[in-house]
Design a protein around this nucleic acid. Structure first.
Length: 448
RNA sequence: GGCCCCAUCGUCUAGUGGUCUAGGACGCUGGGUUUUCAUCCCAGAAAUCUUGGGUCCGAAUCCCAAUGGGGUCACCA
């Protein structure tokens, strides 16, 4: 592979890290690290209006949570102060590849589909104003896309005279990113599919700027499972931090995301970050847009939860659930063990084990027909038990069930519902031991 | 509307001209283990490979077109 691989992740600080951006970062990271190359973080903050305070830091914090650590970091607004972008733009004007423009800025979105490709100022020979790209006539522009694994081309007659330097002196993406990619010796540009349509502009800028153009690849869009449209901040939950808060583990989210847009030849699904880096293959990029299916994410998360040690699961519960954290260490660990196989997310703890700390509510309608005798016998045994131990409890309860000829399942179900208010809980006898004698007796009495 | 990308089970995908009456995973259904749920194990249903033309002895795989889906058209990134 000739020169060193250098891949960059270049977010704009306009908010929290999006799930799609996280995936882009992950792929750029793996692309670089697989070859022993560099992963570069570049903050693209050339639009002061859109910048959201604190998001530069927030993006870095989130990246760290996923262990996507960068080797170098650059901030475009800082680089802008050196005049690097302005210099590049002026060079293009001097060489006849760009021109000054003093038209009023416009927003095509607000104006509908304007098909004005050629700017009225391009031949006015102005000497100040914004700087725009002078797109040549009837020229075919081609590049090989390493994600799509094919050549993609445009005729310049469909490319508009894009703005490179705004009238406030700041560069647009079209200039800043290309100048930086060249200057930072980026070997691979990996970016979202939304950039594909403006690639001919970048091809031209690269050509005029000179130097070695990086390889370019456009990732698929992640589609919403419900709408079939690209995930959007307005409609879908898309922020990485949001998922973390809901109780998804970073490793699980990352594992899920990595398979939306990339797949290995052997169809393996479980990858830690370092395994992914090791097995990463640029040929594995997907061309079709995947859908974000939550139940697959849940499956991954369950897998990762089960791989956690009891202790580390326990500490995650403590961070996530205040009431749980107030329990004794011993009880916490006991509950953690019982719950581990039964949850998909950290936040599921409240649903499955909340009865341990919540005042319990029992809907008597879900109790069985024999519940009165079941519960009375249970209350008797539990009140008179000498050793508060699981084995003792099991034996005594089973002996009574045998003696009275109860149906085992019905008996325990009534006990379960009476104590927890739910039909779905961890093993009930284990739960009773954790709950404690007094609470158990009180709950039984209140139902009877 | 112009330009661009895409198209295999519901979903994520394997598949790069014959071994495909299409394999795996999630989900779903049934069964086993189990005092519930879950975990775990086993089995099953589920794709006329979007359609129509080619090329070829032979196509999910190559070409063309249609259809459908997605994206994009700013002095935002």
């Amino acid at each position: 592979m000739g020169s060193k691989v250098r891949a960059r992740f270049a977010p704009s600080p306009t908010g929290f890290l999006h799930i799609g951006s996280l995936r882009t970062a992950l792929y750029a990271f793996a692309l670089a690290r697989h070859e022993g190359g560099d992963f570069i973080l570049r903050i693209e903050d050339t639009d002061q209006k859109r910048e959201v305070a604190g998001s530069t830091q927030a993006i870095q914090d989130t990246l760290k949570k996923f262990n996507l650590l960068w080797d170098e970091i650059y901030v475009q607004s800082e680089r802008h102060k050196t005049g690097i972008y302005e210099k590049a733009a002026k060079k293009l004007v001097e060489e006849g590849h760009a021109f000054y423009c003093q038209c009023k800025a416009k927003n095509a979105k607000e104006e509908g589909f304007s098909n004005v490709l050629r700017d009225p100022c391009r031949d006015k020979k102005l000497s100040s104003g914004a700087i725009k790209l002078k797109v040549p006539e009837n020229k075919v522009l081609t590049y090989y896309d390493f994600v799509h694994k094919k050549d993609i081309s445009w005729n310049t007659d469909t490319v508009y005279d894009a703005t490179l330097l705004k009238s406030d002196g700041f560069p647009t993406y079209h200039l800043a990113a290309m100048v930086d990619d060249l200057d930072m010796k980026i070997s691979h540009i990996l970016r979202g599919h939304d950039w594909l349509p403006s690639t001919p502009i970048h091809l031209l800028v690269f050509e005029y700027l000179g130097g070695k153009r990086p390889e370019i690849g456009h990732l698929t869009d992640i589609l919403s499972a419900t709408t079939g449209k690209k995930l959007s901040k307005r409609r879908d939950s898309v922020f990485a931090e949001q998922f973390l808060q809901e109780g998804y583990l970073p490793e699980a989210l990352l594992n899920f995301i990595m398979l939306l847009g990339w797949a290995p030849k052997d169809n393996r699904e479980l990858f830690t970050l370092s395994e992914f880096v090791e097995h990463f293959d640029i040929q594995g990029f997907q061309e079709a847009n995947p859908r974000f299916l939550q139940n697959k994410l849940d499956w991954f998360n369950g897998e990762y939860i089960r791989k956690l040690s009891d202790e580390s699961l326990n500490s995650k519960f403590k961070i996530q659930n205040e009431k749980f954290a107030e329990l004794t260490e011993e009880k916490q660990l006991q509950i953690t063990k019982l719950v581990k196989d039964r949850i998909a997310k950290i936040s599921d703890l409240e649903n499955i084990a909340g009865f341990f700390w919540k005042p319990h509510k029992v809907d008597k309608a879900i109790l069985g027909g024999n519940s009165d005798s079941h519960l009375t016998d249970a209350l008797n045994i539990i009140s008179n038990i000498d050793k508060w131990e699981l084995e003792e409890l099991n034996d005594k309860l089973m002996a009574k069930i045998k003696e009275k000829g109860y149906k085992i399942g019905d008996f325990f179900m009534d006990l379960r519902v009476a104590l927890t208010g739910s039909k779905f809980t961890p093993p009930i006898n284990d739960s009773i031991i954790i709950l404690g004698k007094d609470k158990t007796i009180n709950r039984l009495k209140s139902v009877l």
